[in-house]
Amino acid sequence: MTDRTKRVIIRAGAIGLQWIGLTIALGALVMRADASYSELITPSFGAAPVFFGAMIAGFLLGLTIESPRFLAPLVILMCMVASGFVGILTYAPVVDGILIRTPALDNYVSQRVILMTLIMIMAVIPSTVAGTLLGGNLRVRQEIAPHPEDLAVDDEVPWWEQRYGSHSGTESDAETGRRPI
């Protein structure tokens, strides 16, 4: 395995772990946001922490990922998966054999998932943009001055970590017709 491959795996793994962690944290807030369960599950927080939690999660992802092509789908997917935690909670007694699955239950879950997804998407849009704009300083290499080794692998930076338009292109790109990214 080459150094480049290792770097790519570590970076993708770190982003993946971050996404999973934030999604689970948001999902936990979604589970405790439902007024229907407020007397059965304590503490229950209501919907406001979901909104602000989504803002924080979007901001943290924005700080880490610069490429909008990669960031936008990840953030939307995070909101959708976290909303699905309502289904995990509601269907748990069904899986356990305590309750039966009915169309009313399905309708309730689907409407909650849609509502929570919309609430979170509204929250993450501005915070993600803010995070990706403010995160430039955090995304730099660990030293202020670029390390020669890092400079050497600049062309090998994965596409999802490249700033749009930051690459000026090379002569070979011009020959092959490749557009700079």
Binding site: R7, I10, A14, L17, Q18, L63, I65, E66, L138, R139
Partner: peptide, 13 residues
């Protein structure tokens, strides 16, 4: 550019 380790750590926590 590598992700900031502290942000990743906070997210995992």
């Amino acid at each position: 550019m590598r992700p900031n380790r502290y942000i990743v750590l906070i997210s995992i926590l």
